[in-house]
């Protein structure tokens, strides 16, 4: 059975977008999403809300686990791609794919790079990594539980590719935080 999407598709997606926009503008700041769909396994509510907010027939999506594909096709009308290499949106409910394996954009058109949604176990503010870059006044702290062990090395390579590179949306439960490619991360 297909569970419900947004209660109010227009206003709920607007509220979610503002949360994502603020999270992307202030990297590492954790937002609790104000409106959530009934997310089917293995999607968590925040990831499901972000997908419903941003994807449609124009944006193929890659899912690492196909169980939620019908739900997403039904509510968003988006094509579900078999390979992660060329899609504008990718979602990792399980292990995160290598950042370098996703679409990076080009030097002339860096906006064509992928946005990767990663479902993680937990997000905690005030501890963990130290973030710096655009959107951050002095320093933001963020702890993420559930990323691969070599994530910081992958991120350093991703950040070095700027303006090319992948943007990340980290989703845990009903919370999210964003890591645009412009942000520098150092171990806390």
């Amino acid at each position: 059975m297909i569970t419900a999407g947004f209660n109010d598709p227009v206003l709920d997606s607007q509220r979610c977008f503002r949360a994502v926009l603020d999270a992307m503008s202030r990297p590492g700041r954790i937002h609790r999403l104000p409106a959530l769909p009934e997310a089917p396994a293995p999607l968590n509510p925040a990831a499901a809300a972000v997908l419903l907010t941003l994807v449609d027939a124009d944006t193929p999506v890659w899912l690492d686990q196909p169980e939620a594909a019908d739900w997403l096709r039904f509510h968003a009308g988006c094509p579900v791609a078999a390979e992660p290499g060329a899609v504008p949106f990718a979602l990792a409910a399980g292990a995160m794919p290598a950042l370098a394996s996703l679409c990076q954009g080009s030097e002339e058109e860096p906006h064509l790079a992928a946005t990767l949604l990663v479902q993680v176990a937990a997000l905690r503010a005030g501890q963990g990594w130290r973030l710096a870059g655009p959107g951050i006044e002095h320093e933001h702290r963020l702890e993420v539980v559930g990323l691969p062990a070599d994530f910081l090395a992958q991120w350093a390579a991703n950040q070095a590719r700027f303006p090319r590179g992948v943007d990340l949306v980290l989703c845990a439960g009903d919370q999210l935080a964003c890591l645009p490619r412009s942000v520098q991360i150092t171990e806390g």
Binding site: V10, S13, Q14, L21, D58, T115, P134, P163, D167, R181
Partner: peptide, 27 residues
């Protein structure tokens, strides 16, 4: 009219572009 005049597909397209614009300051 839809809320905010634009249809939802247009808003989503602009929202996706805005997120990339924020990730690429000045681009």
């Amino acid at each position: 009219y839809n809320f905010g005049y634009l249809d939802e597909n247009t808003k989503r397209m602009i929202r996706r572009a805005l997120l990339k614009a924020v990730a690429l300051p000045g681009y």
